[in-house]
Design a protein around this nucleic acid. Structure first.
Lengths: 247, 247
DNA sequence: GAGCATTTGTCCGTATGTATT
DNA sequence: CAATACATACGGACAAATGCT
């Protein structure tokens, strides 16, 4: 369909082929592409790099180029998305690990989200989220100390923080505020997310309050790789009513 | 700060310098960078390409490389952003042109957003939005025929569709639903937005209803260049209350 | 663990094409 | 028309990470 020349044309052909492959499938190497299209390495490489910019493939040095899978993650006020369910629904394997969990004085920047005094002890947790054993997101969460006694051990049993707080019977948390955009990740985040190159990634912040009292219980912010997750933000109480389900 | 080698190091140095330059400033050419850093063309080029991926610069063939300006565009349910005011607030010059304005049968895909029968005549308008005379967004809008008699000529006087509908005294439109994410633009959109390369861009859809009757009056969807505009989505009625204004 | 082939990452030099100025 | 600057392309080379033997 693309009527261009050079590596763009090659990228277009490959993109069409990729569309019909399963995520994780290994693609032809640059060397093979050189032979197939009768071009030099520069052109073959440029073509695959364009596919990477488009988010269609993921490249691993020493290993190869693989068809990428991107998962939609819908954020709205009503439904709070569950990482595990979202990833599973897309046919991939979710996992998350707690990197750090401790009680520490809350810094000014996070304290004002929870409406508490800076320096007050609060639960701090850092988690990595995986899709098919590949790092996809790094999240930081602050939880009021009154909400739960010990966080780290409990989170190893129950993966959902909301669910945990609900089970402990203290708070029925609901999302009260959320902000999403894209930013260039600082170097620490890049390394934590195993990003080999610098590119904009999603940043999602949200405040969750107790449904009854309105007290801000948790504040979370997370860095999410845009090549693995497509964040969809939806606001408003009237989602479009489809007259027919087709398309 | 970046302790890497090769073109990453060069890109890092240039990024630091760019941070202190005005948007629109012309950067050193690839040839000058070769001389300055004592590298070949490939490395100089890779460095500048990395800056382009980060959204820090914009490259124009035959002209040069220039410091990019990115404008924040905050979307929330309460405040509907005005293109003109947002761009002006960022210190840039806004402009918009009507490409097409006519009454035509509304297709199924748009009809269900307005809750009307497919094929019903409705106003259709296509607009390009500019920042400093550079194309930044392409928007399509559907307006119920009852809302206004003639759209095209009126929009040449009043740039805001909401304001126009309000002035005509028929509807007081408020945003009732909005969805934002990123997608790979189809070829037509790429050419319309003068994109020399294929990269994900914002897609923003929204439905606006009359405040009194709740009738869906307009449905708009727009493609917005991510290298020029940073869309920030905010949901929830409780924006964080800052205890101190600092930072 | 050592060794080896594969694959991507980086880099060099050079050349030509094409758009802008 | 000429100079400049980015876009594409070739061939060759070595480094670094991976995966297999």
């Amino acid at each position: 369909m693309t009527e261009r020349n050079g590596y763009h044309k090659i990228a277009g052909e490959l993109a069409d082929e990729i569309a019909q492959l399963e995520p994780g499938t290994k693609l032809a190497s640059e060397h093979e592409l050189m032979a197939r299209f009768g071009v030099g390495r520069a052109s073959a490489r440029s073509a695959v790099q364009e596919l990477e910019r488009r988010g269609l493939v993921r490249r691993l040095r020493g290993s190869g180029t693989y068809v990428n899978r991107r998962i939609d993650y819908v954020v709205s006020k009503e439904k709070r998305p569950s990482w595990h369910r979202t990833v599973e629904a897309a046919g991939a394997v979710p996992r998350s690990t707690v990197l750090l969990s401790e009680v520490r004085p809350i810094p000014e920047s996070s304290a004002h989200y929870l409406g508490i005094e800076p320096g007050t002890p609060a639960h701090y947790m850092r988690r990595l989220r995986y899709v098919d054993d590949q790092v996809a997101a790094l999240g930081e969460e602050w939880v009021r100390c009154e909400a739960v006694t010990e966080l780290g051990s409990a989170m190893r049993v129950e993966e959902s923080l909301d669910e945990l707080l609900r089970q402990m019977g203290r708070f029925d948390v609901v999302r009260s505020w959320c902000r999403t955009s894209m930013e260039l990740p600082p170097p620490e985040i890049c390394t934590a997310l195993e990003m080999t190159y610098v590119a904009p990634i999603w940043i999602i912040e949200s405040i969750n309050r107790d449904a009854e009292t309105g007290v801000a219980v948790t504040y979370s912010s997370s860095w999410t790789r845009a090549d693995m997750i497509r964040v969809v933000m939806e606001i408003g109480d009237h989602p479009p009513v489809s007259t027919c389900e087709g398309n």
